[in-house]
Design a binder for these strands. Structure first.
Length: 205
DNA sequence: CGGCTGATGATCT
DNA sequence: GATCATCAGCCGG
């Protein structure tokens, strides 16, 4: 299975983050593949301190921080030494939804630190469909931080991938979102009609 | 809903 | 110093 096949395979699978007090989980409904020779891929210019986990064997987490605000979760997609990966962009919440809402209200600097009240005071609760729609929200809801960079998602541990929780619908394909280079490649995959898929409507037909 | 803008800091050149 | 795989808030249609 190559990285594109894995990107499609991951749609409908369960992503789980076990915290000491609660299990957070959801169905993956949107992914994007980033490949060798792809200028939009973080591995394009070779190994650096930031992207080294993208070169781990298929199924490891590559977590990075961007725009001063957001973590992104990727799954490495190739054999060790080859930098390809899959960005997880949309999640349909299953377990721990009330906790996810709290995590969304926390600032990144306070996230992953067991602080549950300071930042979440009187914010109006967003609609459920916005909870984990988009890569930044997904990571925030599941409390994914840099400390999970490099973990094996197929092994016993705090963050792991499970089997599908219910039948997976039809998979749509589109260009990737939010990149300036290689913007024409059809490497985004999503479950058609699922409200937890991000992006403009025109890409989600 | 779609389009625009500012926030915010790590990373690499 | 420029860039960036984003988001919330705001505005117009």
């Amino acid at each position: 299975m190559d990285t594109v096949e894995l990107a499609r395979f991951l749609i409908g699978k369960t992503l789980v983050h076990d915290l000491p007090h609660v299990r957070l989980s959801g169905r993956i409904v949107e992914t994007e593949a980033y490949l060798v020779g792809d200028a939009a891929c973080h591995a394009f210019r070779g190994v650096t301190p930031r992207n080294r986990t993208l070169f781990l064997e298929r199924g490891h987490a590559y977590v990075y921080f961007i725009y001063g605000n957001h973590f992104m979760l990727n799954v490495s997609g190739q054999r060790e030494g080859i930098g390809e990966g899959i960005l997880l962009r949309g999640l349909e919440p299953l377990e721990g939804i009330d906790w996810m809402q709290l995590h969304r209200a926390e600032k990144p600097s306070r996230r992953g630190r067991g602080n549950r009240s300071a930042d979440s005071a009187d914010k109006k609760a967003a609609p459920l469909t916005e909870l984990s729609r988009g890569p930044g929200r997904l990571a925030a809801a599941l409390r994914i931080t840099r400390s999970l960079d490099g973990v094996d998602l197929c092994a016993k541990g705090p963050l792991w991938l499970g089997t599908e929780a219910k039948p997976t619908g039809e998979i749509g394909v589109s260009v990737r979102i939010g990149i300036r280079v290689e913007a024409h490649r059809l490497l985004r995959f999503y479950e058609r009609g699922n409200p937890f898929v991000s992006g403009p409507r025109r890409l989600n037909s």
